[in-house]
Simulated assay, not measured.
Amino acid sequence: MLSRTASELYWMARYLERAENIARVLDVTNRLSMMPFRETGHQDLQVPLNLTGSGTAYWEYYQQLTMPGIFDYFALDTRNPSSIYSCLQSAWSNAHAVRGSLSSEVWESINTAWIEMKRLRKEGVNSSNADDFFDWVKERSHLFRGAMFGTMLRNDAMSFIRIGTLLERADSTARLLGVKNQLLDNDPDAVREHYRMDTLLRAVSAREAYHSIYKQQLVREMVADLLILRSESPRSLRSCIEEVVNQLELIGGHSANAPRRLAHVLHAELRFSTLDDVIDTGLQRWLTGFLSQVNAISESIQYTYLEAQ
């Protein structure tokens, strides 16, 4: 496969996953903003800014940190490269460039999402239609994955799509865990802490999984265990990296040792680590290290496969 084609497929998948992750974060932020105000109430609105590192850019265009402003900037603003609109636009552009490598069903799922996104942007997103909009974004992402698994060949094209999706998902889950951990550390209110943990699980569609596995009330350590080390959870860090390893092995290649080695090392750390190991290191420090390793894998994949040699 040409490196340019692999790059388009990889980034198409990353942008689609990013759009879904932003929708999940906005959904959680919207729910938290409805809680009774506390001294730290505005910290909840900081979550999208902290996750994407776009706080400085936000204040260039908006004078106050409000939920309507967050909706506009992260859902529809073309000036924000991490907005849902910008992500879907980039995903569509990448998909359009490699239509021949996609099944007709996969292309139609992306093309239809982009056409509908342009219509929804004209209508705007506010508190009255936010839930429907977030559900729509997640639904379009699910349709894309369903079409991909159901209609595409199990070849290199599929592998690069999967790798892009999984690396973006791992990055997003780790960042969300980090931000939420900081919020929980600073909040002495047990009710708010419980609600924040619940919304965190909702953000990654893991609420039912938590109660199925642990069969107890929400405990911060168990939430971290589920989203970091449990291979049963499809959005856990271990699950994502495990599948990245599998896809890299399928692609192979004589010059592919670097990304495979980095991925295998990280997978081994996740596979043989315990929650106590993570806690002893310090969750925030451990997540920072994990993100550094994911970035190293991404850069190695970029150099090895996606840039013309």
Rank of each mutant, 00 (worst) to 15 (best):
G252M: 01
G150W: 09
N257K: 10
P81L: 05
D44H: 05
A268P: 06
P81A: 03
L306I: 02
N295G: 01
D132E: 10
E20P: 14
E299D: 15
E249P: 07
V278L: 03
L291M: 07
R238P: 08
M158L: 08
Y195S: 03
E299A: 10
R175P: 04
T112H: 08
Q43K: 04
H194N: 08
G100L: 13
F74Y: 00
V294P: 04
A209E: 01
W114A: 09
N126Q: 07
L201T: 08
F144S: 12
I161F: 11
P188S: 01
G146H: 14
N129E: 06
E20G: 01
S104K: 13
D280S: 10
L229H: 00
Q46M: 03
V278M: 10
L275M: 15
E232N: 14
D135S: 10
D198E: 02
V294Y: 08
T40R: 08
A296P: 13
G289P: 00
A268N: 06
Y195T: 04
S54K: 10
L237T: 02
R271F: 05
H42S: 06
S83M: 00
F133S: 03
S101L: 12
L9C: 07
Y303M: 12
R14V: 03
R140V: 01
A13K: 05
G124C: 12
E242C: 06
E221L: 05
M12E: 00
G252Y: 04
E249F: 08
Y58E: 01
E168I: 11
I297F: 04
N181L: 01
G124W: 12
G146M: 15
I297P: 02
M117Y: 11
P81N: 04
A209M: 13
S141C: 15
E221N: 13
L143K: 15
L102E: 00
S298W: 14
L262R: 06
S231E: 12
D280T: 09
F71L: 10
D171Q: 11
K215H: 10
H194Q: 07
Q46W: 13
I22D: 07
L177F: 01
R38N: 12
M1K: 15
D27G: 04
E168M: 07
L248M: 02
D225M: 02
Q182N: 15
P48K: 07
H264S: 04
F133V: 01
N246P: 12
M12G: 03
V219H: 12
R121G: 15
S292R: 13
N21A: 08
L229Q: 02
Y85H: 13
E39P: 09
A203W: 11
S159A: 10
Y303G: 08
T199N: 00
N246D: 14
A206R: 06
E208R: 08
R162E: 15
N295K: 04
Q216C: 13
V137P: 06
S90W: 03
S205P: 13
V47S: 02
I115S: 13
T281V: 11
N21I: 01
A209K: 01
M148K: 00
M197Y: 01
F71V: 05
Y195P: 01
F160R: 08
I84R: 00
S82C: 09
L227S: 14
